[in-house]
Amino acid sequence: MTQPSTTAASAKAVPGDSVDAVQQALGAEHAAIWIYGLVSAFLPAAFNNPLNEGVTAHRARRDTLERALTAAKVEPRPPEAAYVSPKPVTDQASSLAVLAIAESDATVAWRSVLEHTDDADLRKTALEALTSSAVRATRWRKTAGATPAHTIMPGKPS
């Protein structure tokens, strides 16, 4: 292992006044990763691709945030010891519903990052995360046959 430095390579430190919002976003990413793991048991193989795509994206966001927090000498918030699904997951329909909830929770957390930082790079990351979670939430709802599948102002706290 060649580790370039103790503060992870190329991670830009989170500005002090953005730490709380970033920790919230990290919490939402941990929760989303957990939900993706939970539902995989209830969804047929046809869902493998979108599930993989989603969980890979959330892991990448989690890693980015952890590096950026570490670079700011802040302890990244760990995953919770236990999660409670927002709804009981028993079948395909309830799986799709909680996936949409997890993505939608992530959009709220990421919009809040936009509102709590002046750092242009962090804003770009947040915009990308907000957009891709909103798109995935829409896809899961569409797959479930929910209408409307989209949210008009994703990330806006209701």
Binding site: W110, L114, E115, A126, L127, R139, K142, H150, M153, K156
Partner: peptide, 29 residues
């Protein structure tokens, strides 16, 4: 909307982020 996000005041960054994400979601629909 996305191009303005890096440079605007914070509240506007959130608003524009939601508009951009909303447009992306509509395309999925």
């Amino acid at each position: 909307a996305g191009e303005l996000v890096p440079s605007v005041p914070r509240y506007r960054a959130g608003l524009l982020g939601s508009v951009a994400a909303g447009c992306a979601s509509l395309r999925e629909v």
